[in-house]
């Protein structure tokens, strides 16, 4: 039953994504992409990834939508040109379907959803689950791995955010000499 819900939510997300292809109003596109993120957060909850779910809801749906709306208020709200030439559309479809066909072909060799014997569950994850709370004192294993075992990854993540922040400030800051 849970799987049916997951598949239904993903079907809704696909319908939204296809609607985004056709839409021209950028404001509506930004808001619908926020709805898309919220649906994705629901799917993560059903897949037992609660930490990812609330990050997606807060960061994906919240912050990205705010950034999009800010960018739209500084640029324009409508897509003025009709969507591409016919040759470009055919090429886009061909590349998308070639990539999709290759990925579906590869999925036949993937372990099925929820298979507890899949290779991913039989290595380091067991140790994190067994030892994590004792090693770090944090009952949430995702937090334990994120902040303790793989703390340097998180340091790298913060570096990326800092660099992006510097980049945004460098691009958008009105330097005094530029003003008329």
């Amino acid at each position: 039953m849970e799987r049916l819900h997951i598949v239904l939510l993903i079907a809704l997300m696909i319908a939204l994504a296809l609607a985004l292809v056709r839409m021209r109003n950028l404001l509506a596109i930004a808001i619908l992409s926020g709805v898309y993120s919220l649906l994705l957060a629901a799917v993560y909850t059903l897949l037992d990834a609660v930490d990812v779910a609330f990050t997606e809801a807060a960061v994906g749906a919240g912050i990205t939508l705010t950034l999009m709306l800010a960018a739209l208020s500084l640029t324009t709200r409508r897509e003025t040109r009709p969507g591409g030439r016919a040759a470009r559309r055919v090429l886009g479809l061909a590349v998308a379907f070639a990539a999709g066909a290759a990925l579906v072909y590869a999925s036949f060799d993937m372990p099925a959803l929820g298979d507890a014997a899949a290779p991913i569950h039989n290595h380091v994850a067991d140790r994190y689950i067994a030892e994590g709370p004792r090693d770090t004192g944090v009952p949430n294993i995702v937090t334990a791995v994120l902040a303790s075992y793989r703390g340097y990854d998180t340091l790298g993540e913060v570096t990326v955010i800092f660099t992006a922040g510097i980049g945004v400030i460098a691009l958008l800051w009105r330097w005094r000499r530029d003003e008329p």
Partner: peptide, 25 residues
């Protein structure tokens, strides 16, 4: 039911790829 989620992700990826390649905005 074991692969439906994976195929859903593939369809989403195709849609996103198509938008990136064909839309000029």
């Amino acid at each position: 039911s074991g692969h439906a989620v994976q195929w859903g992700a593939v369809v989403l990826l195709m849609t996103g790829l198509y938008i990136v390649m064909t839309r000029g905005n």
